[in-house]
């Protein structure tokens, strides 16, 4: 048994059984009719919806909107998070003053800010961007803080011995030593920004994007379009995450590889 499972192509084949059975069950539900038939779009219509969206529809503009929303949010929230996290770790009084406030803000579920922001800046794209930025802000902030605060004393001492100025200490020791955690924060921030983009698009339904398309499709009871959007969301999210990890690996090539 185990010998059989150790062949990679056999494993891959067996791995297809569960999704395959699921799809067959789905197809049967779709063709059975009845109360739930509406919810189970037949597979051929999902395929058709994909072609329709990709060729004539909004699939690529949607991908671009969601992607640019996530990346803009990451740029804004990530930059603020890194700057503030690093500043708080270097200058502790700032940490003492801001930490309780930031912790309080962090406790509120992210989407819980939407009604308030709706009243303040309206239920438009601005609100979406603020929520996405906020979602990327906290992971980068916390990781950057930990990164700089956790720089080993022994490295700082080397700087002392060679008479480093504060700027040299920051540029040559604190920043590179904290870089692994800063990048971890950005990676988490990207994942959060991606989720927050989809979520705010579903909830507010403005400005285009995969979430907006899902929301519209839900109102039109088009499960086929929803499925296409979900699949694209998963694939795109997976891809950008992979690219980001690649970038991280390149930037941290000075680290000993694991194992």
């Amino acid at each position: 048994m185990n010998a059989l499972l150790s062949r990679s192509w056999i494993r891959a084949l067996i791995g297809l059984i569960a999704p395959g059975l699921f799809l067959i069950w789905w197809q049967m539900q779709a063709q059975a009719g009845g109360a739930h038939a509406l919810a189970f779009a037949p597979l051929q219509s999902v395929g058709a919806a994909f072609v329709e969206l990709a060729v004539r529809g909004s699939l690529f503009p949607d991908m671009a909107s969601t992607l640019s929303r996530s990346l803009s949010g990451l740029a804004i929230g990530g930059t603020l998070g890194i700057a503030l996290g690093v500043a708080m770790a270097i200058w502790r009084p700032l940490d003492r003053v801001l930490n309780p406030l930031l912790q309080a803000i962090r406790q509120v579920p992210l989407m819980g800010w939407l009604p308030l922001l709706g009243l303040w800046v309206g239920t438009g794209q601005g609100t979406e961007l603020i929520v996405v930025s906020l979602s990327a802000f906290f992971p980068t902030l916390l990781n950057s803080f930990e990164g700089v605060a956790g720089v080993e004393r022994r490295f700082v001492e080397v700087g002392q011995i060679y008479g480093f100025t504060p700027l040299q200490r920051f540029r040559l020791i604190l920043l590179p030593a904290a870089m692994p955690l800063i990048l971890t924060g950005l990676t988490q921030g990207l994942a959060f920004a991606w989720i927050a983009s989809i979520a705010s698009e579903i909830l507010l339904g403005v400005g285009g994007g995969l979430g907006v398309t899902m929301q519209l499709a839900q109102m039109q009871q088009r499960i086929d379009i929803i499925l296409v959007a979900i699949l694209v969301t998963a694939a795109l999210g997976f891809t950008i995450n992979r690219l980001f990890l690649r970038l991280r690996q390149h930037l941290l090539r000075w680290q000993a590889p694991l194992r």
Partner: peptide, 8 residues
């Protein structure tokens, strides 16, 4: 511990 900076 040699204290070389691992990032350089």
């Amino acid at each position: 511990d040699h204290r070389l900076f691992p990032w350089m």
